[in-house]
């Protein structure tokens, strides 16, 4: 997923990785996302949650989704550094 994003858009500022096993689909990251790349998946994960997804889209790496997320390990944020 991550690799695809990099291939498609080399000059990205940031990217988030959602752990769909840990995500409980509360939607707070969607609400907080400044680049509006996050949404809740129409599909259910195996625990029955509509988990968050970035649909492989990069973002600005602001990290706000990480802080509003109640699950400590559900979101990993990458940011471009020179």
């Amino acid at each position: 997923m991550f690799a695809t994003a990099i291939e498609e858009e080399i000059d990205i500022k940031g990217y988030v990785e959602i752990n769909t096993d840990e995500c409980k689909g509360c939607g707070l990251c969607v609400e907080a996302c400044t680049t509006k790349v996050l949404s809740l998946s129409p599909c259910l994960n195996r625990y029955g949650y509509h988990t968050a997804t970035n649909s492989d889209k990069p973002c600005n790496g602001c990290g706000l989704c990480f802080y509003v997320c109640p699950e400590p390990g559900a979101i990993k944020v990458f940011k471009a550094v020179n």
């Binding site: 990290g63 802080y67 400590p72 390990g73 990993k76 940011k79 471009a80």
Partner: peptide, 17 residues
């Protein structure tokens, strides 16, 4: 060319599992 680095992830003092 910029490189992507992890800036936020689960804290070390939380158990992995």
């Amino acid at each position: 060319m910029s490189e992507l680095k992890v800036i936020h992830e689960k804290a070390e003092c939380l158990y992995g599992n």
